[in-house]
Design a protein around this nucleic acid. Structure first.
Length: 220
DNA sequence: ACCCAGGGTCATA
DNA sequence: TATGACCATGGG
């Protein structure tokens, strides 16, 4: 471990500033899963347009998405970018849900299995990598899996708590080892990291008025 | 006209 | 295991 610091402190500082985020922005577990795929390397504002199209046409359902020709699905999600790739990924996800008896109740996926088993299963879906799997686990299935995204890496590298070259699994382990394994904590922590990232931790940092100034070396 | 966003896959070495 | 090309829209 590079940094022996208090890994809860950033969470507390962010919570103080921003308040509870109550993530994920989505009304149902299935919508969360769809959003997790659509937001891959894509601004959330674009994902919202795509999800709005699915809702407007009453296609925001597992069976509805499977019943749609791939090209038509791609057209509906066009604003989210990579629409051909993502149309295939969404149908792969829905096929997986159906094959696992969760087509009519996505939130029930893997209820009788361990978290690790569900994670490994999710990772077999084409288009579901580590971050997407963890986002689904945490925000759609209520499983305490810590989500690591580009903001997490960037923010904690700037804090000096990461070297920058760590793998996803290494970073996730650092958080999970140094924090109490708690659904609400993991949920809020990642949401707050994204909130901070959008305001202050773009590639060009805006350190002025950053909530983490108290513990950030670049603010001196 | 750039740069970037809440990644993942596949081919290649 | 580790890079690099590729996927594509919309907002700053």
């Amino acid at each position: 471990m590079i940094h022996p610091g208090n890994w809860l402190r950033p969470h507390d500082l962010l919570l103080e500033r921003y308040g509870p985020q109550h993530w994920w922005p989505g009304e149902t577990p299935f919508e969360v899963m769809v959003g997790a795929v659509l937001t891959q390397n894509t601004a959330w504002s674009n994902v919202e347009k795509a999800i709005a199209n699915l809702k407007r046409t009453e296609r925001l359902g597992c069976r509805a998405i499977l019943a749609l020709p791939e090209a038509e699905l791609a057209e509906l999600i066009r604003p989210a970018g990579y629409f051909n790739v993502k149309a295939r990924r969404l149908q792969a996800l829905c096929r997986f849900l159906e094959q696992n008896g969760a087509a009519d109740a996505p939130e029930s996926l893997g209820r009788s299995e361990t978290q690790d088993a569900v994670r490994r299963a999710l990772l077999t879906i084409n288009g579901v990598g580590e971050e997407t799997a963890d986002s689904i686990l945490l925000y759609a299935l209520d499983r305490p899996s810590f989500v690591v995204d580009a903001y997490t890496r960037r923010i904690f590298t700037r804090l000096g708590w990461l070297a920058g070259g760590e793998t996803y699994a290494e970073i996730q382990s650092l958080f999970e080892y140094n924090l109490k394994r708690d659904l609400t904590l993991f949920n809020e922590y990642h949401a707050l990291i994204v909130r901070l990232g959008k305001d202050h931790c773009r590639p060009k940092p805006r350190c002025a008025d950053c909530p983490l100034q108290a513990i950030c070396p670049s603010s001196t």
